[in-house]
Amino acid sequence: MNSHDVTVTGFLIVLGALIGTEIAARSRRTSIPTFSQLFTRIMRTRTGRVGVLVAWAWVGLHFFAK
């Protein structure tokens, strides 16, 4: 396994953990909030709301814009 594979595996593990956490949250057996609940909570304040939306906009600019 070379460094490329190690790096990609790391990202896949994090992605898998994110999906696993969401599934666990939706099973209602844990106190972990779902992705939707998490963002509803974060975005209840103006700072959180505008901050999250700006971060979202930055993702689009980063991948597509000059």
Binding site: W56, A57, G60, L61, F63, F64, A65, K66
Partner: peptide, 22 residues
């Protein structure tokens, strides 16, 4: 990708959503 037309489109959509979300 990274051209001015693509930039204009993404900036337009991004700004619109941020303004609505604000």
């Amino acid at each position: 990708r990274y051209s001015w037309p693509a930039t204009a489109g993404v900036v337009g959509v991004g700004a619109s959503v941020v303004i609505v979300g604000w």
